[in-house]
């Protein structure tokens, strides 16, 4: 009886493993390194005049337009990851290079809405958002 029970339990255990996610969980840090760090660099500082710095990125969350900008920015909107992974990635980026986490955090639904609306002039919008922010501590 014990051998049969063991076999049955083993079968149940195997089935439960099949039910688990088939793909290994991908961390936001992994996606940042693979899809973002080439330009924005591992420390988020970017390159003057070429690549925007991500340091202090949380300041964009002070307005609804800024919150949408962070997803509509070309490199973000076009990142080759799902809405779910992009939401997790951006929630991580804001904390890693800013101070405060998004509140509420980005969700896949919100990210899906914003990334489907490309910006005609991201540089102009970024400048306008920063100009309306406190001038004393603007990111580079």
């Amino acid at each position: 009886m014990r051998a049969e029970l063991r076999r049955l339990l083993l079968a149940v255990w195997c089935v439960s493993l099949i039910g688990a996610p088939a793909v290994a969980e991908v961390s936001p840090r992994h996606d940042y390194v693979l899809h973002c760090s080439g330009c924005h660099r591992a420390d988020g500082t970017g390159a003057p005049d070429d690549i925007p710095s991500l340091i202090g990125i949380d300041r964009f969350l002070r307005s609804p337009e800024g919150r949408a900008y962070l997803i509509r920015a070309p490199g973000v909107a076009q990142a080759p990851v799902s809405d779910e992974r992009l939401a997790a990635l951006m929630n991580w980026v804001v904390v890693e290079f800013g101070a405060d986490a998004p509140s509420p955090g980005y969700t896949a639904v919100e990210v899906g809405v914003w990334r489907a609306r490309p910006l005609r002039d991201p540089t102009e919008l970024r400048a306008r958002l920063l100009a309306s922010d406190a001038p004393s501590d603007e990111p580079r």
Binding site: L9, V15, S16, G19, A20, E25, V26
Partner: peptide
């Protein structure tokens, strides 16, 4: 026990650290 144990296995931190680029 088998169901709960089986479902918990993927949650264990086994080798997860190796997947983190950092």
């Amino acid at each position: 026990l088998g169901l709960v144990g089986g479902a918990a296995v993927p949650l264990l931190p086994v080798a997860r650290a190796a997947q983190d680029p950092a």
